[in-house]
Write a protein that binds this DNA or RNA. Structure first.
Lengths: 298, 298
DNA sequence: AACCATTGTTCTCATTTTGAGAACTATCAT
DNA sequence: ATGATAGTTCTCAAAATGAGAACAATGGTT
């Protein structure tokens, strides 16, 4: 094994927090990780990590080695990427974490198109709404909808996510008319969480709606079906209900009101050279969706 | 084999000028070098070197890769060196090219003392007066006396080399008196090359002496013995004749005149991070000899 | 204080990688 | 046309590396 590979392993051990976790992430036996780390320390003649079976900490030499290694690794990755870019097709693998609804309905076709454009590229798509740990789980890219929390991850905004209130024509006929926001509490709202939400009237004034949900669920498609069946007014992102709106299965409610938009982000590991395949995919998605996506045209 | 090791191999192939020469320098089979270079190119997906069986040239990608690799390699070497320096003894090997006379008489004791100070260090000393190719032959350091030619090598001045005219008392008794430089042509001068030389009188005026040498030889010890035996006036560096002067076997001739000094240099490969063991040795020698060396005290 | 779970280390062995060397190919000089 | 030289390919032995078992050390829990 090489010097650079051992630097990467050392960096991974630090970032994982233990030899055991690093071994899991690297798909290596912990004995192999232990040995290579020991070999690196022996070659350098310096202890990099003070470790017992329960705790470990960087030595002073190790802290410096870690910082400098990061820089060198990034330079090598950039050099490799630049050399590979010399008149060459994208190749390799992209491991992506994709939210269920957005992923199945929209990202899939975009990723399929991207894959056709780059035949030497492979992709592993993991559909999940859970909050993945990108570094820990080895993802190149993850997609998040909402507001990004305090995070060391780096993110690029992919598109705008608008939300609307909508109900079936039958539901609206069978229930009290909704003229303004004060009429909402008398209705059944179908939404993700049984929590109040805020809407803005045409004057920009915000109103918090404290309506109890008869049903709440964390699956937008399910809620859409309920709304189409006349079970209430759905509060959902347009990228889910756009086709039902278009087909007149659902109708906008209080369309002169607005809801603060969310955004969809592509999220990737921090302090790393961004591989061109990852960067190209993000650029492709920004161009494909952007701030005026097709699902807002209904 | 690792990415960094393959970078070093690639750089070596470029600098050696051929796979065959690089293999010789690295003590590897040329099939191994050929394979590793091909593997690196395959991994990068780019041809780095266009090569036929007779000629080779860098591609554009290869030229960039070469330049960037040099930087990365230096950074890694520096990081390693700094980490190794963390409260540690010098270790490893130093391969030195040492001129015969100066080496045997002076450097040897200095290097022996240095080795005693650094027990984990090993040294390979190659005694030769020939002009070695430091990079080609894998030397860490070479020593040169004289004036450095136009060279990309880097050098550090170790000490000053003074030359003197001297003869045995018997020779001086048996031959015409030497009062000033005009008396020299009537004498037999023992020197390295049968060429004129320049001396400066007490007023700083230079005089070219066109005396033919009965004997010339490129071995200073041999010439010293001839002078002691009364065969003529020797023109030699003090580091060779100092003990004969001290023992009154030889006496200065025209001691109020002077000869332009030369210098001894430690020479090392250019554009490289200088390993601390090499740097420490050079510092040691500068301190040990300096501009007023012990052989000038006679 | 005893016990258990977890992490790291060491050792053995199988697998993989790597280099040596022979044989071959291609190119250029004579 | 021939020979010398450099690079490539192939085979095989040697070296390196990782997996997994067993063990040691540490800290938390009871």
């Amino acid at each position: 094994m090489g010097k650079l590979e051992n630097m990467r392993l050392f960096v991974r051990v630090i970032e994982a927090g233990s030899i055991t976790k690093a071994a899991e992430q690297l798909n290596l036996a912990k004995s192999a990780v232990s040995k290579r780390l020991a070999d690196l320390e022996e070659e350098l003649g310096s202890k990099l990590i003070n470790r017992t079976t329960r705790t470990s900490s960087l030595t002073e030499a190790g802290a410096n080695y870690y910082q400098r290694s990061l820089l060198i690794i990034d330079e090598v990755d950039e050099l490799d990427a630049n050399t590979k870019d010399s008149g060459r097709e994208l190749a390799g693998n992209l491991k992506l974490s994709v939210p269920l609804s957005f992923g199945l309905a929209h990202l899939n076709t975009a990723l399929d198109e991207f894959a056709k454009l780059h035949p030497d590229l492979t992709m592993e798509i993991d559909f999940s709404d859970r909050h993945v740990d990108i570094v820990d789980e080895g993802f190149d890219l993850a997609f998040r909808i909402g507001d990004l929390k305090n995070s060391s991850l780096q993110a690029r905004k992919i598109t705008r996510i608008n939300h609307v209130l909508c109900a079936s024509p039958d539901y609206l006929k069978a229930n009290n008319a909704i003229v303004d926001h004060t009429d909402l509490p008398g209705h059944s709202i179908l939404k993700y969480k049984n929590q109040p939400f805020t809407i803005f009237d045409e004057h920009g004034k915000s109103h918090s709606i404290l309506s109890s949900s008869k049903i709440s669920a964390n699956n937008g498609d399910f809620l859409t079906q309920l709304a189409i069946s006349g079970h209430g007014i759905a509060l959902e992102p347009t990228f889910i209900v756009w086709q039902a709106l278009k087909a007149k299965q659902l109708t906008l409610v209080l369309s002169n009101y607005s809801i603060a938009p969310m955004h969809a982000y592509a999220v990737y590991p921090p302090n790393r050279y961004l591989p061109i395949k990852t960067r190209t995919l993000i650029d492709f998605l920004v161009a494909r969706f952007g701030d005026n996506p097709y699902w807002d045209k209904y």
